[in-house]
């Protein structure tokens, strides 16, 4: 069960990165860390058999779900990086603290 603990820790490290990093690339990398953490949690839990029934209730379909997560994650990363490039070109900004349009 160390795997689940590691995955949770990785996820929270990613959260910290998303909240503190000032550069957009860093934020995107931190999001990758978060998502890797969540995928790791799924796989780690799917690897064990139920202590009562002895079957793997999550089985193959968890792996399929993780695969689909990877696809979504890849799409997210691609769009995020494209946004980064676009913002950098148009506004000359690569830092997230310079984007404050939603100020209250």
């Amino acid at each position: 069960m160390i795997g689940v603990l590691v995955s949770v820790a990785v996820f929270c490290i990613g959260v910290y990165g998303v909240l503190t990093r000032r550069d957009i690339v860093g934020v995107l990398a931190s999001i990758e860390v978060m998502l890797a953490g969540s995928m790791l949690a799924l796989v780690a839990m799917a690897s064990g058999a139920d202590s009562v029934t002895g079957v793997r209730p999550l089985g193959q379909s968890i792996e399929a779900v993780v695969l689909l997560l990877m696809v979504i994650d890849a799409a997210e990363a691609a769009v995020g990086l494209a946004l980064l490039v676009s913002v950098a070109r148009r506004r000359g900004v690569t830092r997230i603290d310079e984007l404050q349009e939603v100020k209250g």
Partner: peptide, 26 residues
């Protein structure tokens, strides 16, 4: 940092109840 730490505590509490039903390696 405190948010991340709190989230860690909460997720650990939430997931251990589920994941400690599963043992061994498949």
């Amino acid at each position: 940092a405190s948010v991340a730490l709190g989230l860690f505590v909460m997720l650990t509490v939430a997931l251990q109840g589920v994941s400690n039903r599963f043992t061994g390696s498949a």
